[in-house]
Design a protein around this nucleic acid. Structure first.
Lengths: 141, 141
DNA sequence: CACGATACTCTCCTTTTGGTGCGTATAAAT
DNA sequence: ATTTATACGCACCAAAAGGAGAGTATCGTG
C-alpha cells in the first residue's frame, strides 16, 4: 500500500488540473476508446496485481498468487494475460522443470500504477467518510 | 474529459510518492476495506457519472441518462443509489409533476473525481501504446 | 379524452463472470 | 516407485451482472 503523507497535495494538484481544464474538444472516437480502456484496466484484480508488482519488482506466478488474497488461479492467469497483451507486464518463461515464469511491470505498467496511486490514497483517506455516509443512508431508510 | 498538459507532472509526482513509500505497516483490516472500497468505486459507470457531474455541476436523471452513452436506466438508477449511499452525490427530489430529481457531487465525490483524474490522463496519454502492444501480442500469437 | 413527460420499480431473460476440480510434463527428492 | 512442485489449460457449473420492456402516478397540453 502507500503512505498518505502527500495525499492532500496530490488531490489538490489533480483538482487544480480538473478546474483549469478547457471546455473539452475531444474526438468522440478517442473518448470511446479511452472509456473502453479504462473499463478494461480499472478492474479489481488488475489494480491489485499492479500494486503488488510495483512494490515487489519481479515475481513469479505462485508468489503473486499467494500475495493476492482471494484470487483464483484462473483469474490470475487471465488477468496476467490481459495485462501482458496490454503491454503492462512482461512475462519471461524459464525453460526449467518445474516451470518458472517471472512477471515484471513494464514502463507502461509502472505509469498506470502511478496513475492509480491517487485512487488508493483517496480510498485510504476517505474510508471513514464513506462508511459514515453508508450507515447514515441505511439508518435513514 | 481532461487536458493532458500536466500529465507527466502528475505521473512523476505519483511515482515519486510510490518510490518514497515506507515498507508498509498497514493494518490488514484497513487494507481489506480499502480494497473492497476500490472495487466498489472503480467501476465503469461510477467513473463516467463522476466525470459528467464534475463537468456539468448539477444534472437531473434524464440529463445524465443522455449524457452517458450505452447506460441503461436500470444501471443508472442503481449506480446513482450506490453513489448516494457512499456519500458521493446528493439527490434532491422536487415534489412536482412530472417528478424532477437533481444530482450533484458532494465534496467527497469531487475528491474522488480528482483522484481518478490521473487514470483518465493515463488512458488518454497511453492509448496508442496499449493498442500497439495489443496488435504486437496478437500477431505474435 | 388520449398523450406525453419524469423518474423510477419490477419482472423476465440472456450474457458474463468467476469458482472448482482435473489433467499435464518432468525432474528432483524421498 | 511414489510423491512434490510449477504454471498453467480445459470443462463444467453457479452466481451475478445487466439489458428489455412493461407498469405507475400525476398533471399540463392538444
Amino acid at each position: 500500500m502507500v503512505s498518505r503523507a502527500f495525499d492532500d497535495e496530490v488531490v489538490a494538484r489533480a483538482r487544480a488540473i480538473a478546474e483549469t481544464t478547457p471546455p473539452d474538444t475531444v474526438d468522440p472516437k478517442v473518448e470511446a476508446l479511452v472509456t473502453q480502456l479504462i473499463g478494461r484496466v480499472a478492474d479489481k484484480w488488475t489494480m491489485l496485481i499492479l500494486e503488488l508488482l510495483e512494490e515487489q519488482g519481479e515475481l513469479r506466478f505462485t508468489q503473486i498468487f499467494r500475495g493476492i488474497d482471494g484470487i483464483s488461479q484462473k483469474m490470475l492467469t487471465q488477468t496476467l494475460r490481459q495485462m501482458e497483451r496490454d503491454g503492462l507486464v512482461t512475462r519471461t518463461v524459464h525453460a526449467v522443470v518445474p516451470p518458472r515464469v517471472d512477471y515484471r511491470l513494464t514502463h507502461l505498467g509502472n505509469s498506470l500504477g502511478a496513475a492509480f496511486c491517487g485512487v488508493w490514497l483517496w480510498a485510504e483517506e476517505h474510508l471513514n467518510e464513506v462508511e459514515a455516509a453508508r450507515t447514515a443512508f441505511d439508518t435513514r431508510g
